Computed example of a mutant assay.
Amino acid sequence: MSDVKRILVTGGNGQLGTELKRYAWPEGWAVTAIDIDELDLRDTAAIAAMVAKGHDGQPWAAVISAGAYTAVDKAESDIVTAWAVNAMAPAAFAESCANAGIPIVQVSTDYVFDGARDGAWEVTDPVAPLGVYGASKLGGELAVRTSGARHAIVRTAWVVSAHGNNFIKTMLRVGATNPTLRVVDDQHGSPTSATDLAAALATITMRLVEDSAAPTGTYHFSNAGAV
């Protein structure tokens, strides 16, 4: 039997999933990163089966739930899908992790807040999502928090990387052909490197696996500074 601790990662083709695959995991650790072609996050029965099955006869060491419905504007008219992926899928993963006795790390977002604060959000700040995306991500948080699974919920913001879609890549693409860019300037946030976020999630996950007394709960992670 293998003594490798294998972590199941969802959203494997996204910005964060890509960086979790690229991360220099220590010897004895490995990830299996899946995306929609291997698991439809709307299928809660399939989620439960995948967690219960493990990998090559070995149980998963942990789950990093990074897959999400991230089309913020589209979510307003695609409510059922957004809630299925962002709330019910984490609920199914967390219940299955609780049953398997393994921890889950749930990736969440600053969209669970109302955006009215001048300065960094604190974990203790009251949540007040303004749209479907934020509300559905908050639903995922609540599902994980009440599942009985050992967990860490990690809220982040403005994730950027060389992979996938993000604001910086959009501006570079549009700026290459347009002499003038017109963008809203009433939003402030802390752009966060997917590489740095992946490293933080890896550290948290390995700690949860190896230390039964490791702290659990809700945390914030972003790069420093605001724009």
Rank of each mutant, 00 (worst) to 15 (best):
M206L: 12
N166P: 03
A198H: 01
G115A: 05
F113L: 09
R117W: 02
S136A: 13
I168N: 01
S108H: 06
D118N: 15
D110E: 15
D114M: 04
V107G: 01
A176F: 02
Y133N: 13
P129H: 12
S190H: 15
E141N: 13
A120T: 13
V183R: 02
S161M: 00
F167C: 01
V174T: 13
H151D: 01
A128Q: 09
G115P: 04
L201Q: 09
R145L: 12
L201V: 05
A200H: 08
S136C: 11
H188K: 14
L142A: 05
T205S: 09
V183N: 00
G101T: 10
V159H: 04
G131F: 05
S190I: 14
W158T: 14
Y111P: 06
S136K: 11
T146P: 07
F167I: 02
K137N: 04
V183W: 02
S136N: 09
V159D: 01
R155S: 03
P179S: 08
T109P: 01
G101Q: 10
F113Q: 08
G189S: 01
G131K: 12
R150P: 13
G164F: 03
G134E: 06
L208Q: 04
G115E: 06
D118V: 15
K169T: 00
N165P: 02
T192Q: 08
M206D: 02
S193K: 03
R150W: 06
G140D: 03
T203L: 13
V132Y: 00
I153E: 07
S147P: 15
H163C: 05
Y111F: 15
V154L: 12
F113M: 07
T177H: 10
V183T: 11
V112T: 13
L142W: 01
R155L: 07
R145Y: 05
P103L: 07
R173D: 14
H188T: 15
P129C: 13
V160L: 11
I102L: 11
T156D: 09
P103Q: 06
I102N: 11
G139K: 08
A199Q: 04
W158H: 10
P179C: 01
Q106L: 05
N178T: 14
L142S: 05
A120L: 14
P126Y: 06
D125R: 08
V105A: 03
W121D: 10
T177P: 00
T177N: 05
L142C: 06
G131R: 13
D185A: 12
P129M: 07
I153D: 08
T124P: 00
R182L: 07
